[in-house]
Design a protein around this nucleic acid. Sequence first.
DNA 1: GTGGTCTAGACCACT
DNA 2: GTGGTCTAGACCACC
Lengths: 125, 125, 125, 125
Amino acid sequence: MDFVSNVPIYIQVINDIKHEIALGILQPGMKLLSARDMAIKYSINPNTANRIYQELETEGICYTKRGVGTFITEEEEKLKNIRKEMADELLLDFIRGMKKLKFSKQELLDIVNQRFEECEDEKLC
Amino acid sequence: MDFVSNVPIYIQVINDIKHEIALGILQPGMKLLSARDMAIKYSINPNTANRIYQELETEGICYTKRGVGTFITEEEEKLKNIRKEMADELLLDFIRGMKKLKFSKQELLDIVNQRFEECEDEKLC
Amino acid sequence: MDFVSNVPIYIQVINDIKHEIALGILQPGMKLLSARDMAIKYSINPNTANRIYQELETEGICYTKRGVGTFITEEEEKLKNIRKEMADELLLDFIRGMKKLKFSKQELLDIVNQRFEECEDEKLC
Amino acid sequence: MDFVSNVPIYIQVINDIKHEIALGILQPGMKLLSARDMAIKYSINPNTANRIYQELETEGICYTKRGVGTFITEEEEKLKNIRKEMADELLLDFIRGMKKLKFSKQELLDIVNQRFEECEDEKLC
DNA sequence: GTGGTCTAGACCACT
DNA sequence: GTGGTCTAGACCACC
């Protein structure tokens, strides 16, 4: 986690968890860390950890059994969409922004093509 | 301007101005609106308008003649880079994000190729 | 039982048992399940099962013979009131809530009249 | 507010606000109290006040202008539904519960009819 | 002045 | 041990 970023910590952790779901590391029905353990893992306050689970729950990604713990939802559809939604958001931001700058489709493809390679070299990405 | 967005108003306006520069609408040496007029144009608080000019100055995009007004810099190099820098930021955000989601280069090209067209239809972009 | 609901499990089970009493399925003097069997029947923790019997006892609905088991009280008056009390609580919550929303008596009767039928169709109730 | 109730304070306040909307006291676009002032009005902690506005926002009932304040949504449809939704929830709880207790439709109507009057006398409601 | 985030620490109800 | 709620007090960015 980047405690200096202007992106709130709880958003960063949420994205982290969504990534683990998107990549299949977290599977449907799995138990998540307890709020206290998550607080330790990410060195954040337990309150912040609680908030994270509450957000994930309102998004329908998790559910809570009282006194037992918090679990990844079993609705696989929901989970499958996460990767797609995250990709879509990135894509739309990109295309929209580039269109505003009057880039053509071909320029976009070229620039992606060219820089994707560079990124692998520089390990910036 | 979107007053409800999480993106601060002053950032939105700054981006708006940068776009006008990137697209050549604002040319080197041109006089910008007075802070008061800018406040009216964007229906924002005059304080916010002042802040915008301060930010643009520290980025070296504008300079202020006291009692006269604020002007676009005459250093053309600076201005030429703006479009490139904005594009680069968009590109890096995009590639970095998609790599985290384990998209391959080919998938990226395909998805850009496909969605660029769709965006034209939907007018969402 | 709904393990995700905000309503505590032990309350849900208690209500379940009260219903069985209200409908005459459980009769005065009948032996209830052992805490262990109840735990199995409802797939809950044995501690929770114990708590349930404690609550029912303090309400005077059950009594426990140590080493023998837990039994429905033989005071029939007590049992007869259960259905009435449960109905009353539902009724008061309803009327109080609807009055706060400025529903008139006639509106209440109409709405109950109309929706009671619908519920039978939808099987939501 | 009832600080002893098991209903969380923030839920109580949310319901309070929803009632004011349902009854037309709070109109579309109106500015709500600042979080600090709300904290004073209800004698709660400012954090709790913040939380309330965040909940209302995720429900789409309010929106926030950064640095300006929180406002009732202008989507009148949304607001019109609030009274209906609140009434519906009460109604369903009631009908469902009474059906479980094997009350017939006529009994329901009778009991509502009879007790509605009583409530007016007793001022319990 | 506005809301947003975070920490610290407490208490509670539930399993 | 689990999450849920609340207080207190702090700091920040924004308008």
